[in-house]
Amino acid sequence: MSAILIAEQVLNGLQSGVMLFLMAAGLTLIFGVMGLINLAHGSLYMVGAFAAAAVAAATGSFLLALAAALAAAALAGAVVETVVIRRLYDKDHLDQVLATFALILIFSEGTRWIFGSFPLFLDIPPWLSGPVELPGGILYPAYRLALIGVGLAVALGLWLLISRTRLGVRIRAGENDREMIAALGVDISRLYTVVFALGAGLAGLAGALVGAIQSVQVGMGEPVLILAFVVIVIGGIGSIRGALVGALLVGLTDTLGGIFLPELFKLFTDPSSATTIGAALASMSIYVLMAAILVWKPTGLYGARA
């Protein structure tokens, strides 16, 4: 196994991780501030991908498609929070799970009704197509490098928002003591709507960005949602820094495990069986990682509570 292949897989893991971060950051904000288990977060990821594909097909502009994805997912999130989620804050977590699961079905069937059952395709823009030569003779797709850059830029922007702005102060205060900030005159309902729309917009942006390297189809958000839950458990509930670190760990573990584990098992069994066993263990590796971290730190890496 060459060093160039390993470097390429590390970059693939970073790209996968930063896209997971966009999904998990919104989810951990919503769960940390609002205490809400939102299974429909993956549907907002799908909304962003379909909005981007539709706008790109109509206008031919990839940047307009990204803006449409962000706006459509944020608007859908604000509407969902106002109409449905607002009635669930004082409910049991089981009620939240059932209600947001129903939203998954509504979003899936509504998307299928509007766009049909066949996948849509979002083309990579010409100015990001082709490879970039990196040090060491590594040729890596320019679009995937751009995804890494966008994810890290969003992480920096979220950190500045949370730590340096008035809205960030309110978000952090709402996470710690929502009754107190309501008593101090903060409109908690408006704050919740803003937080939910922000999280939804990040999910929609992730869906649009990933949609250019995968097909855009109904149900595409649910597998990513499972990984996003793993990320926030690893990183710690309510922690943006934890979401970033957890997402990078999950992305690298999943990608590198898929390369190294089959090679390892080839030392002990025939190549065909080794590939099958290694692939199965690679898919389990992120959950083994999560279990190991929870044994060491039950609140996650940067979480204040379990």
Rank of each mutant, 00 (worst) to 15 (best):
A7L: 14
A7E: 01
A67S: 01
I162F: 06
I293N: 04
A102W: 12
I259C: 00
P141Q: 10
L256V: 11
A52H: 10
M290F: 05
L20E: 05
W113Y: 12
G201H: 13
Q9E: 00
T193R: 15
L301D: 06
L248N: 03
A71G: 03
P125V: 06
R164N: 08
P223L: 12
F31R: 14
D95G: 06
G149N: 15
G17S: 02
T100C: 12
L147A: 09
I226H: 06
P298M: 08
G35W: 10
D90G: 15
P119C: 09
L134W: 02
L301H: 03
A279D: 11
T111F: 01
F260V: 14
G258H: 05
W296D: 01
S239Q: 03
L29A: 10
A49T: 05
K91D: 08
A182T: 02
I188F: 09
L252H: 00
E222C: 01
I286G: 02
S239K: 10
V245Y: 03
L264D: 02
R241N: 11
I234F: 08
A173E: 10
L252T: 02
G251M: 02
G278Q: 06
F31L: 14
L294P: 08
A182N: 08
S117Q: 09
V150P: 13
V195H: 02
G136V: 05
H93R: 11
G238H: 08
P271L: 04
G219E: 10
L145D: 09
S129V: 01
V79T: 10
I37R: 07
L202T: 09
I4H: 05
S117E: 08
I124C: 07
G236H: 09
D270T: 14
T299A: 13
L225S: 02
